[in-house]
Structures are given as C-alpha cells and as structure tokens.
Amino acid sequence: MDFQLTDDQRALRAGVRELLVRRFGRERLRAAVGPGGGGSAGRRAVGGLDRALWRELGEAGFFALRLPEERGGVGLGLPEAVLAFEEAGRALLPGPLVATHLAAGEVPGAATGTCVVAAVDGSLVEWLDEADVVRGDVGGAVALRSVDPLTPLHRVPRAAPPDPVAALLTAAEQLGSAAWTCALAVQHARTREQFGQPIGAFQAVKHLCSEMLVRVEVARAAVYAAAVTGDPLDIAAARLLADEAAERGARDCLQVHGGMGFTWESDVHLHLKRAWSRARRGEGAAAAEEALAEDLLTSAARSGA
C-alpha cells in the first residue's frame, strides 16, 4: 500500500496547475465574469466559452487523459483524471468539462477539444447553447437564469441515468474548490488586521479555517480512494464529503472575508455558486445516502456478522 501521489502524479498535477494559472488566471476569470454592477447585475447574459482555451486543454490531454494510447489518448486512469479535475475546480475553470471528458473517444473531436460536448447530468444541462454536440434527452429543455455567472443552465424534464464516473469527476472539482477557498480564507486571515492584529490570530477565525482544512482532507482521502477503487459506493461517499467541503468551505471563506466577501468583486461567491451548481449534478445527495445506508445492511450480511 502506498496511498500517496506518485512522482508522475505530482508532475501531472503541477502541469495542469501551471497551464491553468497561465491560461485561466484570476484576470481571465474576472474578465469572463464581467463587472456585474449597475442595473444589469446578475441579469447579464453569461459570456461565451473560450474555444481557444478548450482546444488548448484538448492538446494538453485534459479530455483524452483516460483514452488508451492506441486510440490517440494519454492512457492514464481515474486517479490522474481526478487530479486534473481537482485543478479545474481550484481554478474555477468554466465549461462542460465532465461531459466533454466522458465523450472522448465516443464523440469525434471531443478528445482534442475541437468539439464542445454537453450532456444531461441529473435534471440539468450545462452549456447547452454553446455545445457542438449534446448527449442525453434535452427535449423540453428550459433555460434558467443561472445563479453561477459562468455556468449557463437548462432544466430538462427527464433526468439522465446516473454515471458514477461523472459523479467522481464532479467530486474532484468540488475538492479543488474547497482546497482553494480554504487557502483564500487563510491568506485573508493572515493579512487582514483588526483590533491591531491579523484576524487569523483570533481563535474564532482560526477555528473556522481549521475546520475548513479538516473537511478538505477528509474529502481528499475519500475522493482519491474512490478514484483508485472505482467502486460506486466509494464514489457516493466521496461525493457527499466533497460537496460538503466545497459548499461549507465557500461559506466559511465568505464569512472570514467579512463584508468584502459579500461583494461581486470578491471571488468567493463564484466558488460558492459553482459548488451549489455542481452539487445538483447526478442523482443528488439523497440517493447517495440511501445507497450507503443500504450498503450497511448488505455488507453486514456479507460478513456474516
């Protein structure tokens, strides 16, 4: 047993992070979000997808990561995909990443990033109007005024059957987001001064930050383990913990930022809104909890206890 990242996995993670910092850093993120403000706040149309970036992701192997080499892919596995999606979540990278990744090898151009693929996930479709190919039944799709300024959403009447791999990659994005909001909160707590000292010296703030890290590390162990086993119940567990880490992490990060956290200018709300939207993918928390409850009965029966 060596449940730690290999050198290759570390290098892959660093490579994806470097690419995203270079191509989708904070300035690019804020440009994509727009200024908000004025009478159009929250009502403005979501900006389009950056197709040049999409192709660059394709060239870097983001979508073809798990496709076998003989089919033009990178030939890696779920653990590597999870690391790449964790970085995407950290960078708040927009677009139907999971759908396009899952379409690699099945939809021409998906693997290389020349084709943008959207898919029904749960009872929602992200980026429907921007996609070149849409998978799943989108008959009767109705546009929502999406709470997440970087994720256009449609609601569909017929939910798609759950895909455990999609749930796992979503959990990886949630994990990356949770790790980033924790880091953001800590950075603010170190530098923001009130009452003559950094607010991070106050235990009330310190303890919020510690709990954020605990949720991140527990979710990380669950997400990485699920990537290794590929077991649907491990994935269900990973998903519950990663959703919790991302949603509560973003809220606590907002709290640590005080009034500034409530502004459009801050990045915190972008993480919170995306975390909310990711948590609606797939079957939802209730189904994951039911599956894990049922497992308690069946695994106890299996062990003959």
Partner: peptide, 24 residues
C-alpha cells in the same frame, strides 16, 4: 436512514484518511 448512510460515508472516509496518513 439517510443519517446512517452519511455516517457510512464518514467512516469510509476516515478509514481512507487512516491509510493516507499511514502511507505518508
């Protein structure tokens, strides 16, 4: 029942975190 399901997730994760810490 859902609470028990969530506890299953919790203790599965704690077992994985144990393996993570041991490997580290």
């Amino acid at each position: 029942r859902r609470r028990l399901g969530r506890l299953n997730a919790e203790f599965r994760a704690l077992w994985r975190l144990t393996q993570w810490n041991v490997s580290e």
